[in-house]
Computed example of a mutant assay.
Amino acid sequence: MKSWYLLFCKPREELRAKQNLALQGVESYLPMIPQQKKSKSSPNGKLVESPLFPNYLFINFDPTEFSVSRIHSTRGASRIVGCREAMTPISDDLLASIKQRVEWHTPEETGAISKGDKVTFIEGPFSELDAIFEQSDSQQRCFVLFNIMGQQKRINVDISSIKAL
């Protein structure tokens, strides 16, 4: 029976494994999210797509019809997680939840607020107070600079709890 499984890939080889599995007819899913990357040429950083789970790829296949050893020998792939004696399939509900969260986390939403922008809290203990957006991380949270008692403090908050002014 066809099910979803978790494939551990070689470092930074998720896309190669995905492409090579597609050539073999194996369906796969690699959740990608936008992430701010800094470099010498771009000190402010640029928005790039990065895997939500580095080194991991979700694959959908039937182990009775497609050889597990073919997947393990695919370029970029390392091994199926939990594949010792009995393979452990991943719940369809869990995968649907991941897909929904990744779709919510679009570049337009994170790109709407950039470093140095003034933001206000729309919920939580700091509701209706202002801060300065510093950066977002890859897990739907962000860092803001907040003035507390005359000092500027860096705090980590849920990105859904702020909006741009």
Rank of each mutant, 00 (worst) to 15 (best):
E85T: 08
S39L: 04
F53P: 04
G124H: 00
V68K: 14
S28G: 02
A77L: 01
G116I: 11
C83G: 11
E14Y: 02
T106W: 08
K38G: 03
E134P: 01
L145N: 10
R101W: 06
S50N: 12
F133W: 02
A164E: 03
K18L: 08
C142M: 01
F61P: 04
K2C: 07
V119C: 01
P43R: 03
K2W: 10
G45Q: 02
S69M: 02
S67I: 07
Y5R: 09
F143R: 00
R75F: 12
Q135C: 14
Q35V: 06
V81R: 07
S161T: 04
L94F: 15
E123C: 04
L52P: 02
L52T: 00
F121Y: 09
G150A: 08
R84Q: 10
A112G: 12
I59A: 05
T106G: 10
K10C: 01
A164P: 05
R12W: 07
P54N: 14
K163R: 13
E109L: 12
I159Q: 04
A17G: 04
E85Y: 07
G82A: 13
S3T: 11
I159A: 06
S136L: 08
S161M: 07
I113K: 08
Q152A: 07
L165K: 07
V26C: 05
S127H: 09
S161R: 05
G124S: 05
C142I: 12
F61E: 05
V26N: 02
S127E: 09
S97E: 09
R84D: 13
N55D: 08
K163Y: 08
F53H: 13
S73H: 15
D137Y: 10
I159W: 03
K10G: 00
V144Q: 05
R12D: 04
K38R: 14
L57E: 02
M32V: 03
A112N: 13
W104R: 07
K118L: 11
I33D: 00
Q140H: 15
D117C: 09
L94T: 13
E13T: 08
V48Q: 14
P31M: 07
V144S: 00
F53Q: 12
L145E: 04
F53W: 06
Q35C: 12
P11D: 08
Q135M: 09
I132K: 07
S138D: 10
S28R: 03
L30P: 00
M149R: 15
L15V: 08
K153T: 06
T110V: 15
Q24C: 13
P11L: 12
M32S: 04
D137Q: 12
V26L: 06
D137F: 11
K18R: 10
Q135N: 15
K2S: 09
K163M: 04
K46D: 11
S78H: 10
Q35L: 14
S97R: 14
S39N: 10
Q139D: 15
F53R: 11
N60V: 06
H72W: 07
Q24W: 09
L6M: 15
I159N: 00
W104Y: 11
P54C: 14
F126W: 00
E123A: 11
I71M: 09
L23I: 08
G111L: 03
H105S: 02
P125W: 02
R70P: 02
E109S: 06
V157Y: 01
L6G: 08
P54M: 15
E49H: 07
C83Q: 15
L15A: 10
I159F: 15
I59L: 11
P107W: 05
A112Y: 11
I159K: 03
